[in-house]
Write a protein that binds this DNA or RNA. Structure first.
Lengths: 145, 145
DNA sequence: GGCTTTCCCTTAACATGTTAATTGTTGTGA
DNA sequence: TCACAACAATTAACATGTTAAGGGAAAGCC
């Protein structure tokens, strides 16, 4: 029995890509006027939610690969959105914190972001929305929070 | 009532990223030995499933942006995985077809790919798996197939 | 025909994803 | 203490994501 690939419109990886596309488009539109990218927005959110932390923790929290995070934090530091300080005890480790300027972006746009997500929630219905999050969490490789 | 952002671990965009990460990792591991990328695999799959087609149709089918597709097809053409011919009637249009070498990759690895997806399907259960695909389709911006 | 508009695709520029190699630091065991 | 493994972060190299601009070809209009 030669197993055949599912049609691409029922392919899980492709469905994930397309769903992400659909969800991100309005968010990207919103972020366009802030001058920051979607990933930089994630970094700010994680820092605002969990406070200052080292780069490894931040990478996990924002779901970014380390090399990406290195570039992103450099860029955000030069824009004054975050601060980076080397840990005194372990000089390999770097502590990253959100700056007032970064916090202001979060404060200014959190409302809009909530609205956008609320739109999707309404489109799916609360129950299905929560179930979707649950199912997605099952696919998450690092769900050890 | 100041609306607050949901915790990042219940954020839909982030959940989509993490789920995609989890699903793609084993697929990327498989593709590593083929020498092609995840996107090139998608292109081959769409061409194998739907036959030769112009670049615009292929871009939609493989969920790739046009500039990405231009680079990818150039690379795949030089590797002999696809063929590109300009349409005689409309010389703006480009027809793209899978080559025997490209088809061989599909044939050789389709079985493994099916196994990997079957693993996720088993982990979620058939019903939940299908429901996940349905929910994701609702978020797809271009679900006009 | 000549003009504009529209369409299909390509380039360009910059940011990120991804893997592998590298640098600087800390911990460890002989 | 000294060589060596383990660790945190960076750098490099290449592919893709994303937006904007460009270039050639077809379609419409006068």
């Amino acid at each position: 029995m030669t197993k055949k690939l599912p049609p691409t419109n029922r392919s899980l990886p492709i469905a994930l890509i397309r769903a992400r596309e659909g969800v991100m488009q309005p968010i990207r539109d919103m972020l366009a006027e802030t001058g920051i990218t979607e990933q930089q927005w994630r970094v700010l959110r994680v820092l605002a939610e969990h406070g200052p932390q080292d780069a490894s923790t931040l990478a996990r929290g924002a779901s970014l690969l380390f090399p990406s995070l290195t570039r992103i934090t450099q860029s955000m530091n030069s824009k004054g959105l975050i601060t980076q300080t080397r840990d005194a005890q372990d000089r390999r480790r770097q502590m990253i914190a959100i700056s007032p300027k970064g916090q202001k972006i979060i404060d200014d746009y959190a409302g809009q972001a909530v609205q956008i997500v609320a739109g999707f929630k309404a489109a799916l219905g609360d129950a299905q929305y929560e179930q979707l999050l649950d199912l997605l969490a099952l696919l998450d490789p690092g769900r050890l929070d």
